[in-house]
Write a protein that binds this DNA or RNA. Structure first.
Lengths: 283, 283
DNA sequence: GGTCGGAAGCATAAATTATTGACCACCGAT
DNA sequence: ATCGGTGGTCAATAATTTATGCTTCCGACC
């Protein structure tokens, strides 16, 4: 039962001084937080013991118990009079505002991206990677960054990964590709002829081509067997790439977690690898 | 801001005993209500004064303040674990559930991270980078990825950036450093002697050293003039690095946006650069 | 008028909390 | 290896807060 309610209920059968205490608490509940029993007594011009006895009479263990109970009630929004101060988060700090709005934009991009990548497709991609003998990963320029990040993650769970940020080198590498191998091509706009070329070559060797692009119609995606799509928008040109990176990152993280949790041994290997790295760092 | 969040954020940079206290509070927050500082100390087998000092260090007035703050947070439903009974519409699809829980963890990490990087420090770092003649960026291994990503962003807004993922090459590069130049050193655990060494060298050349590390006490951070701190936790070892990357990424994105919006010309240059890249891609 | 009960205050005991100073471990520099 | 210096912990103790016992006062009732 709400302590404020209880006080109000008992109020009528209280002595004069007790009623003074009750009224003070009901009116200025928020002040109670930093009042000791002595301070409260002083504020009302009564003795401290009266405050304590008041608390006990109401069924609280003592004054601190009353105090914290009321504090919790307020926090819970149990304002008693119902109105309370509706919690408006009054963001006066520009930094936090920026950080939060940026984060919110990212959340939006993430949701959009999740929406346009059906689960079965994501699963199919995870399965393909999980079963692949080798995984080839390429991304040029800015696309090279998520490519590299994902390649590193995969190699930590003992998936044999070949990563390049150069079309020529990749051409050489995939000469050894076999059926079942997977090629991940990162390219935000999917326009680069060189990458399409590599995709076709990989196809000829019966590998599975997975494109990672923005959610547009583009040549690279047309070639791919499976595609990862990213949706991220913002009117500010300097923010758009941040959202793209974030949404893509999250999708890749999802894939990574799926791969980790799909098969037990992967996790063990990951731990072993992390342990090994840790030893390397603090010899 | 939620006190539980705050405790989690600071957890990494705590001593062993402080961490014991933090863990107890995070795990058994509901028990705290009827624990005095002495009882809490006994429960953990430590001294009462440690509990008080812990409270004060976290910015509370004293132990009672911490206690009531946490009590209120719990009452408010601010469970800290982020779960709360947020009205999630019973996601029956395991994929979406995974994606959302992962995203929620990221949000938490982001909030923690924001909390431990005061605005003025972030501003100071942005200013330093904005005014620098040259910005040097280094990160080894996994740390190289965000380093590279940030270097690329900076160069897009015409900040002269030198990026290496090799300590030797960096040593050579910074020989040319001048006063006012900035060195960004990425190292999750800040333990690598080679990087500390580079930091000291850079110092000798009157450059500004900015460390980017996890929120722990570490040698690299001790050397740095300014530091970027990241807080990210998860009991699953394969998820933790994802959260770290995400929180760090967001902080860097913040810096980037600050740099972009601080001075008009930067944005123009960014647009010009983007335009140039677009032309390069679709001739 | 006596006395009974309850309310309030004062003084004080008990408890809780905060501070101090001593000690120790650890780190970096000499 | 040794020497400050620093940071962290604890025991002792001071300060504050809370709880209780005792006394007084006042009105109700016998």
């Amino acid at each position: 039962m709400s302590p404020l309610l209880k006080i109000r209920a008992e109020r009528d059968s209280m002595s004069a001084i007790e009623r003074r205490i009750a009224d003070f608490i009901l009116d200025e509940a928020h002040l109670l937080r930093d009042y000791s029993s002595q301070q409260l007594a002083n504020a009302l011009g009564i003795s401290q013991s009266s405050v304590v006895k008041f608390s006990q009479k109401l069924g609280f263990k003592g004054y601190p118990d009353l105090k914290t109970s009321i504090g919790e009630a307020i926090a819970r929004g149990d304002g008693g009079d119902g109105n309370g101060h509706a919690e408006n988060p009054v963001r006066d700090d520009p930094h936090s505002a920026l950080a939060e709005s940026l984060w919110q934009s990212k959340s939006l991009a993430e949701q959009e991206t999740r929406l346009i990548n059906p689960h079965d497709r994501v699963d199919a991609i995870a399965t393909a990677i999980g079963n692949a003998g080798r995984v080839f990963i390429i991304g040029l320029g800015e696309d090279g960054i998520p490519a590299r990040a994902f390649a590193l993650r995969l190699s930590l769970i003992d998936i044999l990964t070949v990563h390049h940020f150069d079309a020529v080198l990749m051409t050489a590498s995939i000469a050894a590709a076999e059926a079942g191998d997977v090629l991940l091509v990162f390219s935000e706009h999917g326009q680069q002829p060189a990458l399409c070329q590599i995709g076709r070559q990989f196809h000829e060797r019966h590998g599975i081509v997975v494109s990672v692009t923005r959610h547009t119609a583009n040549p690279l995606r047309a070639i791919a067997d499976l595609s990862v799509l990213v949706s991220a928008h913002d009117e500010r040109a300097h923010v758009r790439p941040l959202l793209y990176a974030s949404a893509l990152h999250h999708l890749l993280d999802m894939l990574f977690v799926l791969l980790c949790e799909d098969r037990e041994p992967r996790l063990e290997r990951l731990h072993a690898n992390l342990e090994r790295i840790r030893h390397l760092l603090e010899p």
